[in-house]
Computed example of a mutant assay.
Amino acid sequence: MPSPRLHVQETNEARSGYESDVSSKTSLDSDALDDEPTCKGGKKRPRGATSKSTKAVPKEIASTSSRGKRKGGHSSPAKKKRKARAEDDAEAEDVTDIDLKDGQEVVGKVVQAPQTGWGSNGQISQHTLDFLAQLRNPSCNERGWFKLHAEPVYRRCEKEFKEFIEAFSEMLVSVDPQIPPLPPKDVIHRIYRDIRFSNDKTPYKTGLSASFSRSGRKGIFAFFKPGDESIIAAGAWCPGKDELSTIRNHILHSPDRLREILSNPEFVANFGEPRPHPDGKRQSVFGHEDELKTAPKGVNKHHKDIDLLKCRSLAVSRTFTDEQVLSSGFIEQLKSVVRVLRPFVHCLNDMITLPVDGGSDGDGDQND
C-alpha cells in the first residue's frame, strides 16, 4: 500500500525571519551528545558494565524457553498483537520521517484518489458527485482544504469529466453537424469562481459544466451538480441588446416557426407547456428572472405574442437526478433530448443571423 503523501509548508516564524534561542540550538549541536552516558555521581560507566536494574537470565530458563519456541513454533496471541502494534508504529514513523528544512512543518496529508469505482467509457461515477458535494460545505470550499484534495482526487474527477465531455461531444456532433468537434479543454468551464464583484467569496463552484455551439461556447449547456440538480439547457441566455432586438423583430413579423417548435409534443414533454406558468415558475422559455413585467418599449401590451416579447432570455432546461446521471445509458438519454433541442437552437440562430422577412427593422428601440 503506497504511503500517503504529506503537504509541507513554511511556518510563520520562518517566513518572518524568526531565529530560535541560541542556547537551545547550542545544546542540540553540542559535542556532549557524543559523550558516553554518565553513572550516578558524575562518573562514566565503564564499557561493558551492566546496569543495576539488569538481571542475568539463568541458563536453564534461557535454554528451556528456546527449546519450547523451537518445538511449538507459534507465539502467543498477546505477542502477535504487540508485534502488529510495533509494525504499525514503525510504518507511521516511516510516513512522517521526512527531511524538513528550517521553518517547515507538516500541515496535512494529501488525500489519495480511490483506486476503484470510477466511470468508464464516458460515464460519471459516484466519486465525482461526492467530491462536488463536499464543496457545498464552507469548511471544504476554501483553498487550504482544496489544495490537499486537488492532487489527486480533484484531478481524477476532472479527468473523468473530460472523458464524459468527449463522449458527449461525439454524440452531439452526430446529432447536430452545425456544432464543431472541439476538444474538451475548449468547452469545459473552470471550477474557479469569479469573486471579484461578488459578496460570496467562496473560491470554487459546486458543479462541473461545459457549453457547445456552432460558434464555440454558447448554445447547449451541460451542468452536473449533486443533489438531483444536474441540467441540460439550450437557447439564448441574456443576449446582448442588438441580438435581443433582432430576435424580437423576428417574433413581431413571423413568430410561427418558434411557436410551432415550442408546441411540439416532444418539446412539451421535456420542457413544459408553451405558455407562462400561472405561478410564475419556469416553464418552456418563460419564467426567467430577467423577464419583463410590462411590454417592451414601442410594443402594444395587448400584442398577440406579448408573452414571447417580454422574454429577455429565450432558453429552456431539463433537470436530471443523480441516479440518471450515474446510469450507463445517460449519454443515450441525453441524445434524445438533444434531438428535441436541435430545431429550437437552429431557429434562434437564424433569428439572430438572418434578416427579418420584408426587410423591416421593426422596433429597434425596444428595452433590453
Results as ranks from 00 to 15, higher is better:
Lys335Thr: 04
Phe221Tyr: 09
Leu252Ala: 09
Thr206Gly: 09
Gly207Asn: 15
His253Leu: 12
Val173Thr: 11
Asp99Trp: 10
Ala269Cys: 02
Gly329Glu: 14
Pro276Val: 04
Leu341Asn: 07
Val22His: 08
Arg248Asn: 03
Thr353Met: 15
Asn199Thr: 05
Gln178Val: 11
Lys297Phe: 15
Ile98Tyr: 00
Arg217Ser: 09
Glu87Pro: 12
Ser3Ile: 01
Asp256Ile: 05
Gly72Asp: 13
Asp99Ile: 12
Phe161Ala: 01
Pro4Ile: 06
Lys185Ile: 08
Ile188Ala: 02
Arg143Leu: 04
Arg70Gly: 11
Asn264Pro: 09
Pro152Lys: 08
Gly42Gln: 07
Leu309Gln: 06
Val95Gln: 07
Leu262Lys: 02
Lys83Val: 04
Asp357Phe: 12
Phe197Met: 05
Leu262Arg: 05
Asp307Trp: 10
Cys157Thr: 04
Asn264Leu: 02
Lys83Ile: 03
Gln112Met: 00
Ala269Arg: 02
Phe224Asn: 05
Lys55Glu: 11
Thr50Pro: 00
Thr294Gly: 13
Pro226Tyr: 08
Glu273Phe: 14
Gly364Arg: 02
Ser313Phe: 09
Asn12Met: 11
Arg82Gly: 02
Phe267Cys: 06
Gly280Thr: 07
Asn349Ile: 13
Ser211Ala: 10
Asp228Asn: 13
Lys25Cys: 10
Pro226Lys: 03
Ala167Glu: 01
Pro276Lys: 01
Ala269Glu: 01
Lys69Ala: 10
Phe286Ser: 01
Glu260Lys: 04
Arg155Tyr: 12
His253Cys: 06
Pro2Asp: 12
Arg47Cys: 12
Phe197Thr: 01
Leu129Val: 04
Ser63Pro: 09
Thr96Val: 12
Ser254Tyr: 11
Arg190Trp: 00
Asp200Ala: 10
Val107Asn: 03
Gln134Arg: 06
Gln333Thr: 03
Leu135His: 00
Ile331Asn: 05
Asp365Gly: 07
Gly287Asp: 04
Asp242His: 01
Ala167Leu: 06
Asp29Glu: 14
Leu172Cys: 05
Gln324Pro: 00
Trp237Met: 00
Ala90His: 08
Thr64Met: 11
Lys335Gln: 09
Lys304Met: 03
Leu135Asn: 02
Gly68Cys: 15
Pro296Ser: 13
Asn300Glu: 13
Ile165Phe: 09
Asp88Ile: 14
Arg282Asp: 09
Thr294Pro: 11
Gly280Met: 01
Ser327Ala: 12
Pro37Val: 14
Gln126Trp: 05
Leu354Cys: 14
Asp31His: 15
Pro58Met: 08
